[in-house]
Measured scan of single mutants.
Amino acid sequence: WEITFERNGKRITVRTTDHRLLELFEKLWRNGADERELERLAEEINR
């Protein structure tokens, strides 16, 4: 799966075969987690 999240013109794409990681990322994104931390998390998930 691949999903791109966008907020205030900032886009972060997450790619993984584990839908649970996408759900976790989406919850953090929707709850306003720090964008720098989300970028780092996305990099780890995308590996």
Rank of each mutant, 00 (worst) to 15 (best):
N46W: 08
F25T: 00
R20Q: 11
A33N: 04
N31H: 09
R20P: 04
I45Q: 02
G32S: 04
T4M: 07
R30E: 07
L38G: 00
A33F: 07
I3D: 01
T16L: 07
W29N: 01
I12W: 14
E43H: 10
E39F: 10
F5Y: 13
F25W: 04
L28G: 01
R11V: 13
L38P: 00
R47C: 07
T13H: 05
E23Q: 12
T13E: 03
T13Q: 05
D34H: 08
L28D: 01
N46R: 05
N8Y: 03
R47I: 10
A42S: 04
N46V: 07
A33I: 08
W1T: 06
E2H: 05
N31Y: 06
T16P: 02
F25Q: 00
A33S: 07
L22P: 00
E39D: 07
N8S: 06
W1Y: 12
N31S: 15
L38S: 01
E37T: 14
V14E: 00
T17R: 13
R15I: 09
V14F: 08
E2Q: 08
K27T: 14
L22A: 05
R36I: 15
D34Q: 05
I3H: 11
I3Q: 11
K27A: 13
R30N: 12
I45G: 02
I12N: 00
F5G: 00
E44S: 11
E6H: 08
E6W: 09
E37M: 13
E26T: 12
E35P: 09
W29M: 06
W29H: 02
L41A: 05
G32T: 04
R15E: 02
N31T: 11
N31W: 06
E6S: 08
I3K: 14
G32I: 03
W1F: 11
G9N: 07
E44H: 13
R20H: 11
T13L: 07
L21M: 13
E37P: 01
R36Y: 15
D18P: 01
T4F: 05
R11M: 11
E44T: 10
H19C: 12
N8F: 04
W1S: 04
E44D: 11
I12K: 00
W29P: 00
R40C: 10
R7D: 02
E23G: 06
A33T: 11
I12P: 00
R11P: 05
L24F: 12
R11A: 12
T13D: 01
R30F: 08
N46K: 05
D18L: 05
E6V: 14
R30K: 12
R11I: 11
T16E: 01
R40I: 12
E44C: 15
E35W: 15
F25P: 00
W1K: 06
W29E: 01
F25N: 00
V14G: 00
E6M: 11
N8V: 02
W1H: 10
R7Q: 05
A33L: 07
L22Q: 03
H19Q: 14
R30A: 10
G32D: 04
E23K: 14
F25E: 00
R20N: 11
T16G: 10
L24D: 05
K27Q: 14
N8M: 06
L38D: 00
R30T: 07
L41V: 10
L24K: 11
T4V: 14
E43G: 08
R47Y: 08
E6N: 04
L22G: 02
D34Y: 09
I12M: 06
T4H: 12
D34R: 03
F5R: 03
E26S: 08
T16N: 04
E44K: 11
W1V: 10
E44V: 12
R47F: 09
T17L: 11
E2I: 13
H19V: 14
R11F: 15
I12V: 06
L41P: 00
G9K: 03
R7E: 02
L24C: 09
F5Q: 00
W29I: 06
E6C: 15
E44M: 14
K10R: 13
W1M: 09
I3E: 04
N8D: 11
W29L: 04
L24R: 08
G9V: 00
L21C: 08
R47K: 14
R11G: 05
F5I: 11
L24P: 00
L22S: 02
G32Q: 06
T4A: 06
R40P: 02
F25H: 00
E35M: 15
R40T: 11
R20A: 13
G9C: 04
V14C: 03
L28A: 13
N31L: 09
F5T: 01
E37G: 03
E26Q: 11
N8I: 02
R15F: 10
D34K: 03
L21D: 04
R36L: 14
K10V: 14
F5V: 15
N46F: 09
F5E: 00
E37K: 07
K10D: 02
I12E: 01
T13N: 03
N46H: 06
L21Q: 09
K27C: 13
E6Q: 08
T16K: 01
T17W: 11
R15P: 01
L41S: 01
T17I: 07
D18G: 02
W1Q: 05
L38M: 07
I45M: 08
A42E: 03
N46P: 01
K27G: 06
L28C: 07
E2V: 10
R11D: 03
R15N: 07
E23F: 10
T4K: 03
T4R: 03
A33D: 03
N8A: 06
T17A: 12
G9D: 04
E35G: 06
G32L: 07
E2C: 12
G32M: 07
K27R: 13
E35K: 03
L28M: 13
E2N: 03
L22E: 01
L22R: 05
F25R: 00
A42L: 12
R7T: 09
R20G: 09
K27I: 13
E35V: 14
I3R: 14
L24E: 10
G9W: 00
E44W: 15
L41T: 03
V14L: 15
R15D: 01
L41N: 01
R40S: 11
E43V: 07
R30G: 04
I3F: 14
E6G: 02
L21I: 08
V14A: 01
H19A: 14
I12Y: 14
E43R: 09
T16Q: 01
R47H: 11
E37A: 11
R47E: 08
H19I: 15
E23M: 15
R36K: 14
E6Y: 12
N8C: 05
R36Q: 14
F5L: 10
E39R: 07
R20M: 11
T16F: 13
V14I: 15
L38R: 01
N31D: 12
R40V: 10
E23C: 15
R7G: 04
R15A: 06
E35L: 15
T13S: 06
E39S: 10
